[in-house]
């Protein structure tokens, strides 16, 4: 067990240069962007002098190196800087917006896995069958439709025509009071205090955007599950298990699926990272106060601190995600943990 802790510690250490690199690159890249935040911030009526004043106030008149040192110094104190756009500290903005995106993405991925993995298994059991082709059609359709289209379509059907869904405006209808922030996930926070009314209110708001994202992410997961299951099902130990009279259930889920899980987990990690970065379209359609739309607005406004804060928090998130994937590898496959020690 201590060997496992040690290898986890090593993996965390390996992430340090990545984070340093991200800090440098995000700083340089934001400075290389066209647009002047001082001009933007000063407004349309500003004259040359007031722009210059603002520039000095923001510290933009200093050399790049000086700016960088100040930025790093602040970072070390946990200060991400002030957003020009919202007037709030970037850290506060991120703490509010990141959970909104995470909650949406995680729920979407859970739904996507819940559907795609069984679909993949079903397809692998009878390759070339009707189910197989049906599965392929469903997931291909899901990935082919752009998310903003699926989103709008779902809103049209379930909100406008059927009236089942609440209005697609944010995380919670105004009739409910936001639960106290513990994790920032409304579902969890409301469940903690036992406020089920708010819980279901938040769930209703989440349903449509989550389904939109889930439809989009099903394809890679289902395809990978099918491929991995196919190769595992043709291996020798499955034949041994069958010859020993184990039930189809046990063979399929106890033996085959666990062995097929490694590539599926890898795919899941990849899907998670691109979804979190790319769900800005869904957030826009559903007026979701997530980190994707925050980042795009900050970028348009040349809001350096906000953009840097976004890139950095994403990088940290991916480092953590990769760590979780590596750990789950060693939990799934005893051979991997062995080599790491």
């Amino acid at each position: 067990m201590s060997g496992r802790l040690k290898s986890i510690g090593l993996r965390v250490l390996q992430a340090v240069p990545v984070v340093i690199g991200v800090v440098v690159v995000s700083f340089v890249l934001t400075r290389a962007l066209p647009g002047d935040p001082a001009v933007y911030f000063a407004g349309a009526a500003a004259d040359e002098q007031s722009i210059q004043q603002i520039r000095e106030a923001l510290g933009l008149d200093k050399s790049l190196l000086q700016q960088f040192l100040i930025y790093v110094g602040d970072l070390l104190h946990g200060d991400f800087g002030q957003s020009i756009m919202t007037g709030q500290p970037v850290a506060d903005d991120l703490i509010r917006k990141l959970p909104a995106s995470l909650e949406l993405t995680l729920l979407a991925l859970c739904m996507s896995c819940g559907l795609a993995v069984p679909l993949g298994i079903m397809a692998a059991r009878n390759p070339g069958s009707l189910q197989d082709h049906l599965c392929r059609m469903v997931v291909t359709a899901g990935v082919s439709l752009p998310t903003f289209f699926t989103g709008v379509l779902l809103i049209y059907v379930f909100y406008y025509l059927l009236g089942w869904a609440p209005s697609p405006l944010g995380r919670l209808d105004f009739i409910y009071i936001e639960p106290d922030t513990v994790t920032g996930f409304y579902l969890i926070d409301s469940a903690i205090i036992g406020d089920w009314e708010v819980f279901f209110g938040a769930l209703k708001q989440l349903a449509l955007p989550a389904i939109t994202l889930a439809l989009f992410t099903m394809a890679p997961i289902a395809r990978m599950t099918r491929a991995a299951m196919l190769s595992v099902l043709s291996s020798d130990f499955i034949r041994t298990a069958r010859a020993a009279g184990l039930t189809e259930r046990k063979v399929l889920y106890g033996y085959a699926l666990r062995n097929a899980l490694l590539p599926v987990v890898t795919t899941l990690g990849m899907v998670f990272s691109f979804t979190l970065g790319a769900n800005v379209l869904v957030e826009k359609v559903f007026a979701w106060p997530g980190i994707g739309s925050y980042a795009v607005e900050a970028l348009v406004a040349s809001d350096y601190a906000a953009v840097q804060g976004f890139v950095l928090s994403m990088a940290l998130l991916f480092v953590a995600l990769n760590l979780i994937i590596d750990i789950s590898y060693s939990l799934i496959d005893p051979r991997i943990g062995f080599e790491a020690r």
Binding site: S235, F237, T240, A241, Y255, N259, I332, D333, R335
Partner: peptide, 8 residues
């Protein structure tokens, strides 16, 4: 070796 489940 291949006839046994590698991760059980």
């Amino acid at each position: 070796r291949a006839a046994l489940n590698p991760i059980r």
